[in-house]
Structures are given as C-alpha cells and as structure tokens.
Design a protein around this nucleic acid. Structure first.
Lengths: 333, 333
DNA sequence: TAACAAAATGGTTACGTATTCATTTCTTTA
DNA sequence: TAAAGAAATGAATACGTAACCATTTTGTTA
C-alpha cells in the first residue's frame, strides 16, 4: 500500500485477462463483454489501480497539459486572467502548468517550457520583437499571446491599446486638466507602446504639444513606480492628473498618493487601463478603460487557443474594442 | 520543421554514436570524451533536438510536477500564497499544476489530481474530516496542507487560528466596542473553527455572553457576504465593529460599507485575519492579525514539502504564531 | 611489449500504456 | 449442421528515455 505501483499488467493478471483488455475496459468498454468489464473493474478496485497518465502521454503524444506563462499576481490584471484561464482549462479536462514571469526568471522559464511536451502554450510574456516567437513556431504546438502582440502579428488577443490610451487621456482632458503626465512601461512591449501612442494622439487632438508633457517609463515594479512618483512631485509644475498605462500602475499610484497624505482626486486625478476586478472595489473606485465585452481577456484567449487546438481556427489575430469606466479617481478640474 | 519529433535515437544516428551516449552527453557529460560530446552537441543543435521529458518521467518515475490545489484568487490570501508557491517550485526546477478549488469543482479536481503522477501535492482545500486525506496517504506521495488542518493532525502548516481570532477580537474590545459581531466560514474547515473559538474566548474573557453576540457564517462568496451584511444592517442593535474571519471577508465588507455610504471606521470598525498584501494598500489599510514571521504561509508550506520530498523531514505539523497589525479600519469607540 | 586498469562506448531492457493485427469465440443464416 | 460473419480477446509492438551490464578502446605500469 502506498508507493507500490500497480500497473494495468497487474490488473490483467489479477483479472485473468490480457493487458489489452484492461486498456479497453478503461477506454472503449463498449467493445468488451459486460461480464469481462465487471471482472476487470473488480480487479481495479481490489488492487487500487490508478492509470499512469505519463505512460499514456508517451504513447498518445498528448499530455493534456497547457502551459501558462503569466505575469506576476501582484499585478491584478494577471489575477483576473490567471483565474479565467486556469478555470477554463481545468473545466476542459486539461491541466495547467503555471509560471509567473519576471525579468529575472524568464529565460529559465522558457528553457523549462520548451522541454515540456505541453499540448499548447498561452503566454503574456512576449516582446514585440522576440526570438521566442520563432522558437515556439518551431516547437510545432499551438500557442497564443494575450495582452501582448509580436511583430509577426499572429496568434494574439489584445485590447485596442491605442484606443484605450486615447480614451483615458481624452477623459482627463475633457475634465479640464491640462497639466497631465504619463506613466508607462517598456516600449518593447506592444501593449505599452500602443497605449502611449493613444496618449500622444489625444494630446495632439487637443492641441497640446507632446514634448511638453512629462512621460515616465517604468519596469512596473513597485520600487520603480515609487521612484517615478517622487520625480513627479519634484516637477516644476505639478500635474493635476496622472495617466497610468495599466490599472496596476494606477493602483500603486493611489497607494503612494495616500501614503504621502494626498487626496485623490482632489490633489491628483488618476486613471488606469485594464478595468481589473480590483479597480471596482469601492475603496479603490479607479476610473479606467477596459474591455467593452463582459468577457475577461484571458478567457477570450484560452477559448481561442482551444479552437486552434481543435483545428477549428488556424490563426488568431484579435483586437477587442474598449470603453471608459468612469469612477471616483477623476473629476472636473 | 515543427511537429516532426526528433528523438535521441535520431541524434545518435546523426552523430554516429549510440543512443546511450546521447543520453550520457545530456546527463553525465563527464563520462564522455570531450570530442564525442562536441559531436553529439552539434547533432543536437543541427537537428533541433529537445529531450522528451514525458519519456524521462516514465523511466525515472519522477515527473518534476507539484500539484497545487489553491482556493480562488478573488481571495487575496490565495494570491499571496499561490505566488509564493509557484515561484518557489519553479525556482527549484519543478513545474506546478495549478487548480483553483471551489465547492463545485473539487470532486473533478480530485479525480484529475489522483491520476496525475505528481511528485508531491500541496493543497488548501481540505476539510477537518475529509476522506481525501486517506486517499492521498494511499497515493504514497508527499503532500502538505496549508491554512487547513485535518483531524489526523499531520502534514499541515497553519497559523495559530485560535490566537488570531482572540487577538483580533480583543483588539476590538480593548477599543471600547461592546456591540460586535462575527462573520466566519464553514466549521468543517479547521481555520474557521479555530478563529471562531478565539473570538468566543475573547468575549468570555471580557465577560461578554457569547450567545448574545451575533455570529454569521458564510460560504465566503461575495453574494453570501452581501446577504449577511444586509442581515447585520437589520439587527436590532447595530454593531459598531465587525470581526471577519479572513481579510477576504473583511475587504468585501469594506466594499459593501462604502457602497452603502457608510464610513469605516466611523460607522463600522472592521478587522480581518491573514494580513494579506492587499490589506496593506493605503486605500484599504485593513487592521488585521497575521503571521509574526515575515514569510508567507504558502512559502513556509512549500519549503517544508520539499524537505519531506528530500526525506529531510518525515511529518510536518506546524502552527505559526501571530500578531496584530493595527491600521485604519479600527479606532476607539 | 605484455598485462592490466581505467576510460569510453554500445547493446539491451524496462517504464506503463494504447494500438495494430491476428486469433479465438460466439451468432446468425442457409 | 456447416459456413460465414460479427464480436471478443490476446500477442506483439511502439512511444523516447535512463539504467544496467557487456564490450571495446585507451592509458599505465612492470
């Protein structure tokens, strides 16, 4: 009991049948005489047999595993998407190998992922120009990016980032703010690049010179955001509104504002993008821009990935439209 | 290219050596002549060979997979623990199969988990009396529970729940509140049972009759917490302080208070237990009770699990001590 | 140079399952 | 009852690797 492996061969011997028949009882019982099924099922019960899905994977060349490379959960966006993805995958009878990628561990994650014979990969850790894309293509298994797009413009689900940046900025401007600033992320990531572009477009459309507007770019770590917030406080003319490229950044800015004794939105307007669940909490009540659809972006992506796996779709290129969610962190100037 | 599997046998043929040598080059290169290593490595490069870890698992009887059964991420406690566990496991070179257990899907999760030949299991979804415990023992692989304890009193890491309930309640009482109430969870879960016991002990020690104090028990879903909050508002004497069994419940109560236009702590004091990361956010600033140690409970648990896997420990029975974290959701009456 | 030890390599097998093909058993029909 | 077809079962094999044991090659010492 415990530790001693019992195989289908053992079951076969115990039941007085062949291993083939045991396999059939488990997979195609309709091809086996009822009485035999019973004998075998009894043996399985008796010996406490549990099929070895590693062996099954080897022969079937299907592991039933989906690899998920998510960003870290301290970013509430990934809380929402990870929930949606993991639950969907499990509901479909698959397993999920989860990784939380950061700058430091991505390489080691990729090494591990490439060795794992997963049936498919879903990831949010792809740069606009990233060799990983081609490595994944070589692997020959389906993959999809969510909230990230690669230069090659294939296999992705994103929100309309340019429009999102535009809507957020425009909302702030329409409230009468003129001293605004931007906190973004690395331009190597399509998401951040697009949202910043939307920001600039909105400024231009309001006749504001982009180069006069302070823009900061962070690696999205708490420390880095804090550093930038302090820079903002030192600005010659302090902005009345802060446009953050993501809710995660915005929510951290809220934290820093309150820590310093500032009041939002009286001292600072703050707006984010993503409309994460947490932003709906009444203690946060973050004004933000997010999916028009009720569906979570992770859900949309994993759904599409399964379509690809089932050959129902060939290549996913999906950009979801967005809208403004006005809440309590913005107000008329 | 892509989809066509290349095996170590192919590499062997290409390099003009045996499959055994290829295997050795990858696992024990010090036993292979440098020139041969080079030949093989070239062949690997040339053929784009990636070892099949399914086959490796089969022969080695080790999958390198840890199964994690967590609670859902809308509970911030599981955000913290999942982060700690997944990152630790990956840093150790293992993979993590993640499940988010709810009332509905637990049975199907258990079925899947029992078939998966994981090297170990870490889970938070165990009732005080739960047959699963014995099924896991039969499986013969190491497992550990975090934030949950089974009747059998083995393989667990928890906080001192009774003390936590006591400290939280006592804090409220010491602030002068007398009209308090309790929002807990299912008593089948050791965590909730212990914390409620601490609540009752504190009341007794302050000479308050337990049976006169309103206590509510929820399945911890948002809807259920809302239902209970509405019940509280209907109470003949409205409590001035709400003791929640978890930060997750407390944070949802905060949300409901604000939604109704109440102010915390002026209208209601709110206190939680767990000291989750989110409770530190200045928009929340939840008074709570949590680990005295800096370490995350999930981290402690997964660390211990690896000790068991490496036979450094036999059986984990760990109860961590706790302390109060006073913040802004409680104040003198 | 012979003898021997050490280093390097190869042949074969096991891991536990699903699959393919062959064989046996049972049913049906003429 | 024989023949033919269908249903049920089994034997053998493949999946891709690591491990065990045997063999060859190399290096060392007398």
């Amino acid at each position: 009991m415990g530790g001693f492996l019992v195989s289908s061969k053992d079951v076969a011997k115990y039941a007085g049948v062949s291993q083939t028949t045991v396999s059939r009882v488990l997979n195609t019982p309709e091809l086996v005489k009822p009485k035999t099924v019973e004998k075998v099922m009894n043996a399985i019960e008796e010996l406490n047999y549990i099929p070895n899905d590693i062996a099954r994977s080897l022969v079937q060349k299907k592991t039933g595993i989906i690899t998920l490379i998510s960003g870290p959960l301290h970013n509430p966006f990934f809380v929402d998407t990870t929930t949606a993805i993991v639950n969907y995958v499990n509901a479909r009878g698959y397993k999920v190998n989860v990784y939380f990628g950061t700058e430091d561990n991505l390489d080691s994650i990729y090494n591990s992922v490439l060795e794992t014979k997963a049936d498919a990969i879903i990831l949010s850790s792809m740069l606009y120009k990233d060799d990983l894309f081609f490595k994944l293509e070589k692997l020959g298994i389906p993959f999809i990016m969510y909230n990230r797009k690669h230069q090659e413009n294939r296999y992705f689900v994103e929100i309309d980032n340019v429009e999102a940046g535009y809507l957020a900025t425009n909302h702030i401007l329409s409230l009468g703010h003129r001293d605004v600033c931007w906190i973004g992320g690395p331009h190597e990531i399509s998401t951040f690049y697009g949202r910043y572009e939307g920001f600039r477009n909105a400024l231009k459309d309001s006749g504001i010179e982009v180069k006069n507007v302070p823009s900061f770019f962070t690696n999205t770590s708490k420390n880095d955001i804090k550093r930038i917030f302090e820079e903002i406080l030192m600005l010659p003319t302090r902005p009345t509104a802060i446009c953050a490229a993501t809710d995660a950044i915005a929510i951290e800015i809220l934290n820093l504002c309150l820590e310093r004794g500032f009041h939002v939105p009286n001292d600072f307007n703050v707006i984010g993008i993503d409309n994460v669940e947490l932003s709906k909490h009444h203690s946060i009540a973050l004004t933000t821009v997010g999916l028009e659809s009720e569906k979570n972006l992770g859900f949309i992506a994993i759904e599409k990935l399964f379509e690809v796996m089932e050959k129902k779709s060939a290549c996913i290129q999906q950009t979801e439209s967005v809208k403004l969610f006005p809440r309590n962190t913005t107000c008329k100037k």
